[in-house]
Design a protein around this nucleic acid. Structure first.
Lengths: 128, 128
DNA sequence: CAAGATATCTTGCATGACAAGCTATACGAC
DNA sequence: GTCGTATAGCTTGTCATGCAAGATATCTTG
């Protein structure tokens, strides 16, 4: 497709990259909460559904999925059809759902603190 | 005992730590936008004003301030009074103010994307 | 003097995002 | 056949940066 290395922002402004830290786990767990998915699917899904704002590369995702598996937040199911490339489906466990809740709460706490500091109440967009 | 080893995590919940990534620069620039400040002051100010939610340690702050200085986002002024420990005051430059604007916009973009993702009800899973 | 608060700076480690590279299967075009 | 592309997964190495821990120095108080 548009493999356009000339894009002025081909390299995320570096802030976006760092912002993703600590939120990616939450993001992926949230995607999985909607139903099982395989890695490649999560990558394309996130890129598309968030307009690239929360994009994740496979080089980032697979290690993350492995960490989630090791932490027992997800379980893995291989789907090896007669034809087609085998897919590794990830499914949330109860522990994963609890982790998702915790992380979601943490996120809202953090986002609220940021909103308070930056002086906006989010809902009201009165820009001064 | 005020010493509470059972506190699920002796260190910052690791997620909180990572969430600070990429937002700390914004936070500090924002504090400096309110007027010049010295390092130790920023540490105590942030801890107090955000109820610890956006706390930063001096071991984190000083290297950050140095990066900001090297990037010309701040200028430094030493205050060496006849009595009292010398203080290094940091002041925002025009470039720093522009960076603050950029980072603030980036933050709101990111926060909005997160809100959109997390706000989507799980019940509605009719994807394309 | 000793101890503590104030104030700055440095070293070393751990984490994790990401680019770049790799493997393998399926399928259409040649 | 085999080449190119899409799908699908995995691995290695690099870089940035948060933070603990420690060093240094000054001032104040007992």
């Amino acid at each position: 497709m548009s493999d356009d290395p000339e894009r002025s922002d081909s390299r995320k402004s570096s802030i976006a990259r760092e912002l993703r830290r600590g939120s990616l786990e939450l993001i992926v767990l949230h995607v999985l909460a909607a139903g099982e998915a395989y890695g490649y699917e999560i990558v394309t899904k996130l890129t598309r559904e968030t307009d690239g704002a929360l994009e994740v590369t496979d080089g980032t995702l697979y290690p993350l999925l492995y960490r989630l598996e090791r932490a027992a937040f997800v379980v893995v199911r291989w789907d090896t059809p007669a034809r087609g490339v085998p897919r590794k489906y990830y499914q949330l466990t109860d522990a994963g759902r609890m982790e998702l809740d915790t992380l979601t709460a943490d996120w809202f706490t953090f986002a609220a603190a940021m909103a308070r500091l930056l002086g906006k109440a989010g809902s009201d967009d009165s820009h001064d």
